[in-house]
Simulated scan of single mutants.
Amino acid sequence: MNIVAFLTYVIVTSITPGPSNILMMNEARKFGFIGSWRFNGGILAGFGLLGIISGVFTTSLYHWLPVLGPYFKWAGAAYMLYLVWLMIGNKSSEKDSRDVQSSFLSGVMLQLINVKSILFFLTVMSAFILPYMTVKEDVERGKLKIVSHSEQFDPIYSHMLIKKKKWLSPAVKAFSELVIKSISVSENESDLIH
């Protein structure tokens, strides 16, 4: 498992605001640090429960994830728009909104339908944990064998087409120059090997 990629994904995903972060801040704003503990505890418990459910789900349905991924993205976008609609559409007075405090169970339920958290666990399980665990178990059981070799393999090439008269963004130009440079360097190295 690539630990740098794993930690980068976890940190970036954790610090970007999602529905839970926004609602936790709103709850703390309304009821204070102590008053929001039940709801925040429910969010935390729901996150742990979601992790367990996602782990079981991902492990049992590992081959269905590429099919379900795009639907989760659209569901997440729709959910975020729904939350925005609720926040904008809430025209009640400050006094009315202070009367209702969110409960532990509402925090758990919110987290269980939080698409950002669902995608987080599905991505962590499918991209980092399961591939590592599956290969490790297969090697330990003898189904796979690690074979050492000392042969040199010819480089694998890919094709890149760029329309010369079309405007290219600076990023695409830089990428194409990098690819062309790496291909010319690898061709020179292969000439030296043969």
Results as ranks from 00 to 15, higher is better:
residue 1 M to K: 10
residue 2 N to E: 05
residue 6 F to S: 05
residue 7 L to K: 13
residue 7 L to Y: 07
residue 9 Y to F: 15
residue 13 T to F: 04
residue 18 G to P: 11
residue 19 P to I: 11
residue 20 S to H: 05
residue 20 S to C: 14
residue 21 N to R: 02
residue 23 L to H: 06
residue 26 N to P: 08
residue 27 E to V: 10
residue 29 R to L: 12
residue 31 F to E: 07
residue 35 G to K: 13
residue 35 G to V: 14
residue 38 R to N: 11
residue 44 L to R: 08
residue 49 L to N: 12
residue 52 I to L: 15
residue 53 I to W: 05
residue 54 S to L: 01
residue 55 G to P: 11
residue 56 V to T: 14
residue 56 V to D: 03
residue 56 V to C: 03
residue 57 F to Q: 10
residue 60 S to G: 09
residue 61 L to Y: 06
residue 62 Y to T: 12
residue 63 H to A: 13
residue 70 P to W: 03
residue 70 P to L: 05
residue 72 F to S: 10
residue 75 A to Q: 06
residue 77 A to F: 04
residue 80 M to Y: 04
residue 83 L to D: 02
residue 84 V to G: 14
residue 91 K to H: 11
residue 92 S to R: 15
residue 92 S to P: 03
residue 94 E to Q: 14
residue 94 E to M: 13
residue 97 S to G: 06
residue 100 V to Y: 04
residue 101 Q to I: 11
residue 101 Q to M: 11
residue 101 Q to A: 12
residue 103 S to E: 06
residue 103 S to M: 07
residue 106 S to H: 09
residue 110 L to K: 08
residue 113 I to S: 11
residue 118 I to V: 15
residue 120 F to R: 06
residue 121 F to I: 11
residue 124 V to H: 03
residue 124 V to W: 00
residue 126 S to H: 14
residue 127 A to H: 11
residue 128 F to H: 12
residue 130 L to D: 02
residue 131 P to H: 07
residue 135 V to R: 15
residue 146 I to H: 01
residue 154 D to F: 01
residue 155 P to E: 00
residue 163 K to F: 00
residue 168 L to I: 06
residue 173 K to L: 09
residue 175 F to K: 15
residue 175 F to Y: 10
residue 177 E to C: 10
residue 178 L to H: 13
residue 179 V to C: 06
residue 179 V to L: 08
residue 180 I to T: 14
residue 180 I to S: 12
residue 182 S to A: 11
residue 183 I to S: 07
residue 186 S to A: 05
residue 187 E to Y: 02
residue 191 D to H: 05
residue 191 D to E: 13
residue 193 I to K: 14
